[in-house]
Design a protein around this nucleic acid. Structure first.
Lengths: 188, 188
DNA sequence: TCTGTAAAGAACATTGTGTTCGCTATTGTG
DNA sequence: CACAATAGCGAACACAATGTTCTTTACAGA
């Protein structure tokens, strides 16, 4: 645990992480280079690679702090209850989230977000299914796809909308079909 | 129109495009470099840049041939009639499409696919809406997101499924909600 | 204080992109 | 067929970015 106790280590790591966030806000994730980061953080090149393997490594070290999982226990409240709180949270962190999730952000972050969200949705559906639903994985994928699609479009300013509108669209499109599947054990 | 009439030009362009496709099948789109392409196509570096600006430029030159738009006139047949034919077509071109749409493929192709698909969905919804639907753009985004999510998951082998299962999931999840929106002029 | 270690910083190898230029080979046309 | 136009070759170049290695310096904590 040397890494944590030495002040120099803490300072350096934090400088690098802050620098990345700032740069993401400035010019987006993809276009930010390691060279940019070490310049902004004012650390030596070797120092960077002593702490992180990658740009992505830095980001993921940070990502857990930013995790927007306001997901409560699975079976409380309405179906897909995570939706509105999530859209609201995204709006409050608009700049950063846009930079990470939009077209200018890396696919890596989106992939990670999709995975986490899929887990949430999966549990929610399992908790509510009265009978085993066939091909639940497919349903989860479709639902996550709809949500993330909306989120990305929003992040990219393809349309202006309030969190409430986003939430309403998502639920209105997706909930009736999913409810049918859950109750009837129907396809897919 | 020199470009079309000179045999050398035709040969070169085709060699480059074929090389890219082969390389995509070998190692994926993102990891394929221009250097790879000119080696495989056996053309000079300068020649490549005389014809294309980019790896992406080559791809998009090809993409129209691969266009999987089996979208008939908007208001014929069932809602989202493009779904099954599209999944079937994707399966027949499995390797290539997977390489392009999966995680190993570039975001550029996905983005393009989403745009084209959004256009199809948009027209279909407009043709069927008895009354103007508010925030149709949001609905389109959600629908496209669900479809592309399924398509990407499939391409990535996250699950095995037949085109029929894919189609059924997509329609079952999405159609009830969309129908409600169209008929009631409801949210979002 | 004094020892272990973090950081600086510079040099280096490597890989990829995109451009330039003079020479050669091929093409379509008169 | 002959010839002017031009496509292609290939090598060299400038540039940007990644990741490694090494020596020297400076700092933290016991």
């Amino acid at each position: 645990m040397t890494g944590n106790s030495d002040r120099r280590v803490r300072r350096t790591r934090q400088a690098i992480q802050r620098a990345l966030i700032e740069l993401i806000l400035d010019k987006g994730y993809e276009t930010t280079t390691v060279t940019d980061i070490i310049n902004r953080a004012d650390v030596g090149r070797s120092t960077f690679y002593a702490h992180f393997t990658d740009k992505q490594d830095v980001l993921f070290g940070n990502l857990d702090d930013l995790v927007f999982l306001h997901a409560g226990p699975p079976s409380e409240g309405p179906l897909f209850g995570f939706s509105l709180p999530m859209f609201e949270h995204v709006q409050s962190q608009r700049q950063l989230v846009s930079a990470l999730l939009g077209r200018r952000g890396g696919g890596a972050v989106i992939a990670r977000g999709e995975q986490m969200l899929a887990e949430v949705v999966r549990r929610e559906l399992l908790a509510r299914a009265p009978q085993p639903t066939p091909r639940l994985d497919l349903v989860v994928t479709a639902v996550v796809g709809a949500f993330m699609g909306l989120l990305r479009g929003w992040a990219d300013d393809q349309f202006a909308a309030t969190p409430v509108e986003m939430d309403r669209t998502f639920r209105t499109v997706v909930t009736p079909g999913v409810t049918m599947i859950l109750t009837s054990g129907e396809p897919a």
